[in-house]
Design a protein around this nucleic acid. Structure first.
Length: 473
RNA sequence: GUCCCCAUCGUCUAGUGGUUAGGACACCGGCCUUUCAAGCCGGCGACACGGGUUCGAGUCCCGUUGGGGAUGCCA
């Protein structure tokens, strides 16, 4: 049996977006699961739209997602001679013909046909004219069968295809002599010996044409597998214009590639009731049978959940390296590695669904000056808290050891001395004093992480705030 | 307009003629608790509609409705 060869063929017209990323992932996964090869081809034939910058962005996105490809990257623009050669072959074998029709006249005839209730396809005016190479400015059209089904057995959608009567002869070479997408794709896929073409369902119509092209070129057809589109909240195909969906943006927003891969693979593919799939799992268990047929909406809440799941499973070193840029943004400068920061990060794992959120939650540790939450201050730094904070401060300063256990003991003693008040009565004012807000990890952990010096300073500062407030009222 | 495709909880989905229609996320409630989370337990919640076929349809067929995609000398 021939070994499987798939490819991902993005056009570098923007950043790698969700839909493309999923197509890439599926192709990668299928190849890996079958012990085959996964190739990368950049479709840069539309020079107007292609930009090197975007090509780099696409590659970067692939690498970030962990989708490694085999062999050298193929650039479609470098294969022009082959495309032109193939067109010539089609011309020589009578599978294609030169067409002199101008855009305007084709357009006009099309309009007329549509008005008459027809399909509005090219009417084949030049089909049998047998125009030679010296016929002046011309395009080249593929000579499609006039009738019969042009179909294939799709691995996802089953019997697919269209009746030839609904199709017009498509242009495969522009009047300036350059090849068009459909021709180039087929020629490249043949030369690259692609065995399975896995791509978005928006290509279904192209596939009809491409099947005819394989036939005309006398080449074996690959297995086709169309994947339902990912749609936005409005049910529309994801668009770069309307939706913020580039993978680098997700990265910047603090999502892990592990989460993104897992999220994406479950958009249109499933395996029983399983939800968690590492890239390694995907490369092992992915199958075309598991691909569904209806479009999927991308749900950020699910991504958030997955992201936290993977954040929890990261090693300490890995986590630190990945949040670091986000921490530094919050800190406004370089952030030093330290045991207490590592400890804080661990405490924050189960409180953060993104790395950005995690850095935000670490703000009180990263900045010298506290940013107070007004509501929290009003609620917890009140006169009643004054004796509490003061006696706590005194007791804390006398502590020989600054750690969680010792702090817990101090809190218990103060709570007892203050008339057996609940721990919460004590903890909240302290929390607001040392973090500026009402939420943080456990108060003992928080204080330990913060260290004696800063904790004491901030509690004193908190006491000052209470005094100030009681004087002004 | 024409062609193609799709249709199970709000979302992602399991389901291949006989199920109390399952899971996950989200949401709601409870437990835990020094806050927020996390965790655990529980709850709400779906087969678009109408015809067939069948002893029996979420599952098969037809139609309707709704949605999407394609209709480029773009990729």
């Amino acid at each position: 049996m021939d070994s499987v060869r798939t490819r991902f063929a993005p056009s570098p017209t923007g950043f790698l977006h969700l839909g493309s990323a999923r197509t890439a992932l599926f192709n990668w996964a299928y190849a890996r699961s079958q012990g085959g090869e996964f190739l990368l081809r950049i479709e840069d034939t539309d020079l107007d739209r292609s930009q090197e910058e975007y090509e780099l962005a696409v590659i970067e996105g692939m690498e970030w997602l962990g989708l490694d490809w085999d062999g050298e990257i193929v650039r479609q623009s470098e294969r022009r001679a082959r495309h032109i050669e193939a067109t010539q072959t089609l011309l020589d074998t009578g599978h294609a013909y030169r067409c002199q029709c101008s855009r305007e006249s084709v357009e006009e005839r099309k309009k007329r046909d549509v008005a008459a209730g027809g399909p509005g396809t090219y009417d084949g005016r030049c089909r049998d004219l047998e125009l030679g190479p010296d016929c002046g400015e011309h395009t080249v059209r593929l000579k499609l069968p006039l009738e019969g089904l042009i179909g294939w057995e799709d691995s996802v959608f089953g019997s697919s295809g269209q009746d030839a009567s609904q199709l017009g002869d498509a242009i495969i070479q522009r009047s300036d002599g350059t090849p068009l997408y459909n021709l180039a794709v087929v020629v490249d896929d043949i030369d690259m010996q692609i065995t399975h073409v896995i791509r978005g369902a928006d290509h279904q119509a192209n596939s009809v044409l491409q099947m005819a092209l394989y036939d005309a070129l006398g080449a074996p057809r690959p297995v086709m597998a169309h994947v339902p589109l990912i749609v936005d909240g409005a049910g529309k195909k994801l668009s770069k214009r309307r939706n913020n969906v580039s993978v680098q943006q997700f990265r910047e927003e603090g999502y892990l590639h592990e989460a993104l891969d897992n999220w994406i693979v479950r958009l249109g593919w499933s395996q029983g009731d399983n939800e968690i799939f590492t890239l390694e799992d995907i490369g092992r268990v992915f199958s075309l049978e598991g691909v569904g047929r209806s479009p999927a909406q991308a749900d950020i809440a699910k991504l958030d959940w997955l992201n936290q799941h993977y954040i929890k499973s990261l090693t300490s070193d890995d986590l630190f390296e990945r949040v670091r840029p986000h921490l530094e943004r919050v800190a406004g400068g370089p952030v030093e590695d330290s045991p207490s920061l590592r400890r804080l990060l661990d405490l924050l794992r189960e409180r953060s669904s993104t790395l950005v959120e995690m850095a935000e939650l670490a703000r009180w540790q990263l900045q010298d000056e506290l940013e107070y939450d007004e509501k929290a201050v009003k609620k917890h730094l009140r006169p009643v808290a004054l004796p509490l904070l003061e006696s706590l401060l005194t007791a804390m300063q006398a502590l020989p050891e600054w750690n969680e256990t010792a702090l817990a003991t101090v809190f218990d003693e103060v709570a007892e001395a203050q008339g057996g008040i609940k721990l919460g009565k004590l903890a909240q004012p302290v929390r607001v004093a040392v973090t500026g807000g009402p939420n943080s990890p456990g108060i003992f952990e928080t204080l330990e992480v913060l260290g004696r010096e800063t904790s004491v300073r901030r509690i004193e500062q908190g006491i000052a705030i209470v005094r100030e407030r009681s004087e002004s009222t």
